[in-house]
Computed example of a mutant assay.
Amino acid sequence: MKKGPIGIFDSGYGGLTVFQEIESRLPQYDFVYLGDNARVPYGTRSFETVYQYTWECVQHLFAMDCNLVVLACNTASAKALRSIQQNNLPLFDLDKRVLGVIRPTAEVVGAYTKTRKIGILATQGTVSSLSYVIEINKFFPDIQVFQEACPLWVPLVESNEFNTPGADYFIEKNLDNLFKQSPDIDTVVLACTHYPLLINSIKKFLPDGVRLVSQGKLVAESLEDYLERHTQLRDFCSLGTRRDFYTTGAADDFNEKATLFLGHGVESKHLPL
């Protein structure tokens, strides 16, 4: 292998919240971000379609010399990661690695709850996959997991309507639905990378004493630990200030909306599929 940047993949913009946390924790590395904006949303698509789209984009990142790719997308992690790890990589290149965002959250979430009841807020695709229920119960069989799909939250973020009374209405409604399942939930996981932009509104309607867990920081910490344990792979992650952004959609649109997530502008390039 030749040295290359760490690849960050998402179906659109949400993975930028994960990228931001990873870059903050591991600023010494080069990074390439790819958003499949031309085919978003992934949340309502079938397992097979999400797998095909994700694997196609991962191969593009491999072609950019990325030896390690993080799927900074809950839907892709839920519907595609295992197939890529078990079926594609052994035939494609045993030295490449693809990681997701669900396992790093599931591994540590037990430390946040005292009642052993956790709520998951996510897209319909992630909820339907039951990935969080399965993964959390692998590490913490005593924890009960309750889920609530929030199909309108991503459009609210991407249309820059997340600080409006309309957004508050839907956030309050979804939280009410979640806590109707169990009033003893004491920890809520934001299981979509768009949702950190809604944190201020979510906190307004969250019951007192409930802990809110956002994924980006956990994924960044997990990646740092992974690289410390896999030194051979770490040595093939290039060091520097490279920050490249690619989108399968329109570059101008990506640049504009990326500002909402990162707080600063980017200059992306269009990647034709």
Results as ranks from 00 to 15, higher is better:
Val18Lys: 07
Cys192Phe: 11
Asp10Trp: 12
Val127Gly: 07
Ala122Phe: 06
Gly166Asp: 09
Phe146Gly: 01
Leu260Asn: 09
Glu21Asp: 15
Lys204Pro: 00
Trp153Leu: 13
Ile102Thr: 03
Thr247Lys: 08
Asn174Met: 01
Ala63His: 15
Thr187Glu: 02
Gln215Ile: 10
Phe205Leu: 07
Pro272Asn: 13
Phe245His: 06
Glu172Pro: 00
Ala258Arg: 01
Lys114Gly: 15
Ile6Ala: 10
Thr123Cys: 02
Thr75Met: 09
Asp235Asn: 14
Phe205Val: 01
Ser268Ala: 12
Pro90Asp: 02
Arg229Ile: 04
Asn163Glu: 13
Val109Gln: 03
Val154Lys: 10
Phe205His: 14
Met1Glu: 11
Ser201Val: 07
Tyr33Leu: 02
Gly15Thr: 08
Phe170Leu: 09
Arg103Pro: 03
Trp55Thr: 04
Gln85Tyr: 01
Gly7Pro: 10
Lys173Ser: 12
Gln28Asn: 06
Tyr112Thr: 04
Leu190Pro: 04
Lys79His: 14
Ala38Thr: 01
Arg25Val: 13
Ser129His: 15
Leu34Val: 04
Leu260Tyr: 10
Leu34Ala: 11
Asn74Pro: 01
Asp186Ser: 02
Pro272Glu: 14
Leu26Phe: 08
Leu175Ile: 00
His264Met: 03
Lys217Tyr: 11
Gly12Asp: 14
Asn74Asp: 06
Thr17Cys: 05
Gly240Cys: 00
Tyr195Ile: 03
Thr126Trp: 13
Gln147Cys: 12
Thr193Gln: 03
Cys73Asp: 13
Ile6Glu: 12
Asp95Asn: 13
Tyr246Glu: 05
Tyr226His: 11
Pro165Gln: 14
Asn174Ser: 08
Ala258Asp: 09
Ala149Asn: 07
Lys203Phe: 02
Ala111Trp: 08
Phe179Ala: 06
Tyr29Ser: 10
Pro165His: 11
Val50Asn: 11
Asp30Pro: 06
Leu260Pro: 02
Val70Glu: 12
Leu94Ala: 14
Gly209Asn: 07
Thr54Tyr: 11
Ser11Ala: 01
Val219Ala: 04
Ile120Pro: 02
Asp225Glu: 15
Ala63Thr: 13
Cys66Val: 01
Phe47Ser: 11
Gly265Thr: 15
Phe245Gly: 07
Glu135Gly: 03
Ser201Ala: 15
Val18Ser: 11
Val70Met: 15
Asp168Thr: 01
Glu148Ser: 01
Lys257Glu: 11
Ala258Val: 04
